[in-house]
Lab assay of single mutants.
Amino acid sequence: DHWHVHIDGERIRLDGASEEFIRTLEELIRRGTDARELKEIIKEYLR
């Protein structure tokens, strides 16, 4: 599956992301997590 998110107007691909990770991201977004912080979390995950 190819997922991607838009954060700060930037399109970030989440290739190979699990549904669990996507749900976690959605939860963080709902909580109002800062965009820079979200991008860091995604970069760490994709390593």
Rank of each mutant, 00 (worst) to 15 (best):
D1Y: 08
D1C: 11
D1F: 11
H2K: 09
H2C: 05
H2W: 09
H2A: 12
W3S: 08
W3K: 11
W3V: 10
H4R: 02
H4L: 12
V5I: 14
V5D: 02
H6D: 15
H6F: 11
H6A: 08
H6S: 13
H6V: 15
H6M: 15
I7L: 10
I7E: 01
I7F: 05
I7N: 01
I7Q: 02
D8N: 08
D8M: 05
D8G: 07
G9F: 04
G9N: 07
G9I: 06
G9D: 07
G9S: 05
G9T: 05
G9M: 04
E10L: 04
E10H: 07
R11K: 15
R11I: 15
R11D: 15
I12E: 01
I12K: 01
I12Q: 02
R13Y: 15
R13I: 15
R13S: 15
R13G: 15
L14H: 01
L14N: 00
L14F: 05
L14R: 00
L14W: 02
G16F: 10
A17G: 06
A17N: 04
A17K: 02
S18I: 04
S18F: 03
E19R: 11
E19N: 10
E19A: 13
E19F: 10
E20C: 03
E20A: 12
E20K: 08
E20Y: 09
F21H: 01
F21N: 01
F21V: 04
I22W: 04
I22P: 00
I22F: 06
I22K: 10
R23K: 13
R23S: 10
R23E: 09
T24F: 11
T24H: 15
L25N: 00
L25C: 02
E27R: 07
E27D: 10
L28H: 08
L28D: 01
L28K: 05
L28F: 06
R30I: 11
R30P: 00
R30A: 14
R30F: 08
R30D: 07
R31K: 12
R31C: 05
R31N: 13
R31W: 08
R31I: 12
G32C: 04
T33S: 08
T33M: 12
T33V: 14
T33D: 03
T33C: 05
T33K: 02
D34R: 05
D34M: 06
A35N: 06
A35T: 09
R36S: 13
E37S: 12
E37H: 12
E37I: 14
E37C: 05
E37R: 09
L38Q: 00
L38I: 13
L38W: 02
L38Y: 01
L38C: 01
K39M: 14
K39N: 08
K39I: 12
K39E: 08
K39P: 01
K39A: 08
E40T: 10
E40C: 07
E40W: 10
I41W: 09
I41K: 10
I41Q: 05
I41F: 10
I41S: 03
I42Q: 00
I42E: 00
I42V: 09
I42K: 00
I42T: 01
I42P: 00
K43P: 00
K43D: 14
E44R: 08
E44P: 06
Y45H: 07
Y45G: 03
L46F: 14
R47E: 14
R47S: 15
